[in-house]
């Protein structure tokens, strides 16, 4: 009885939705009744039954075969999913090809952001061991997932003509298993990384000025910023937080197929997963560029955890001032001035 009521609710919602979309949908709640009457007036006419067959599950639809959705004769969602997938594969492919090209063009015309003054040689702790460890855990699992995901989505068009079918299928099997097992590790590490970095990523007034001036990336001037500049904060909230959680949640729906989720949910999860993952990868290209080639000294900060005083002053002046003002505070180990040994470059 409960299930019937649920089905009613869902079909009611569905009818409302289709009405909103402006398409006429002839779904009658009482196909059985109609068929019984039709049998008397027009014997052999099974139109109401076929309508129910097309419409999915009606409450009187049964089968002896145990399993998920085995009583559904025809599901229409598959075609919608297939068409949607076709579109986002095409455009996503272009976006993922063009973004690195644009970054390359930018690097070629503008070059890396170099330090303006000479390094003082005095180093400031920027990231603790834990912070670096969690960052690289997320980063490495992300790269594995991105690469395996892209191979599974585009490999048929890009790699299969080169490798041949057998070799590519071995690669694809490897990718699928990597994707399925590395995924949960990524999700867990992602949560820990969000908790680690959320404190320094809340937007401040000066961040809006930074956004208004696009971080001075065009003019070349320095716009004040805290421990993280507004660009990094946008990556944190939009990329790591929003896309990361969306990708992880939909990934779990697809990865653990043993919780009785139906095809409709998995189709939806697949579309959301793929689209947000491609956006994530496109944004990641920007982050990876700024963290390595694009900014002198940025990679060292995440690799060794320390930055030169000059770098801190030029890139994160507000954070630098805070650190100078609160010499005593050594919270989390990364806060406070360190004047240690010299560090091997590279």
């Amino acid at each position: 009885m409960n299930r019937m009521r649920l089905t009613r609710w869902v079909s009611c919602l569905f009818v409302m939705l289709t009405a909103l979309c402006g398409t006429a949908h002839a779904q009658t709640p009482d196909g059985a009744q109609q068929q019984a009457q039709r049998q008397q007036t027009q014997p052999g006419n099974n139109a109401p039954v076929w309508r129910d067959v097309r419409g999915g599950e009606n409450p009187y639809q049964t089968t002896q075969v145990r399993g998920r959705e085995t009583a559904v004769l025809i599901q229409s969602g598959g075609e919608t999913w297939r068409q949607t997938r076709r579109v986002f594969t095409y455009y996503g492919g272009w976006v993922l090809a063009i973004v690195p090209l644009l970054i390359g063009l930018f690097y070629w015309r503008k070059g890396a952001i170099k330090l303006k003054e000479k390094p003082t040689g005095r180093l400031m702790a920027r990231f603790t061991d834990w912070q670096r460890m969690i960052h690289w855990t997320v980063a490495i699992t992300f790269c594995v997932l991105a690469l395996s995901g892209l191979i599974m989505l585009f490999g048929k068009y890009v790699l299969m003509p080169v490798f041949g079918r057998t070799l590519f299928s071995w690669l694809a099997i490897l990718c699928k298993n990597l994707h399925n097992f590395v995924g949960p590790v990524f999700a867990l590490a992602l949560i820990l990384m969000i908790l680690t970095f959320i404190k320094d990523n809340f937007l401040k007034i000066y961040d809006f000025k930074w956004i208004a001036k696009l971080g001075g990336i065009v003019s070349g001037e320095h716009v004040p910023s805290g421990r993280f500049n507004a660009g990094e904060k946008l990556w944190f909230w939009g990329g790591v937080m929003f896309l990361g959680i969306v990708v992880s949640a939909t990934g779990f729906v697809l990865d653990f197929a043993n919780f009785g989720q139906g095809r409709e949910l998995m189709q939806l999860a697949n579309v959301v997963h793929a689209v947000s993952a491609m956006m994530f990868v496109a944004a990641f290209f920007g982050h990876a560029y700024m963290g390595t080639l694009g900014t002198e000294g940025a990679y060292q900060a995440m690799r060794q955890g320390v930055v030169d005083e000059t770098w801190a002053k030029e890139h994160h002046d507000i954070w630098y001032q805070e650190m100078i003002n609160s010499k005593s505070s050594t919270v989390a180990g990364a806060q406070g001035l360190v004047i240690p040994t010299t560090i091997k470059q590279g």
Partner: peptide, 20 residues
Amino acid sequence: VAGCGDRPVATVYKKGEYSG
């Protein structure tokens, strides 16, 4: 005009061209 570039990505199967 974004939609204009859209073309079918579905693989076309011609007789005798299956690579498997």
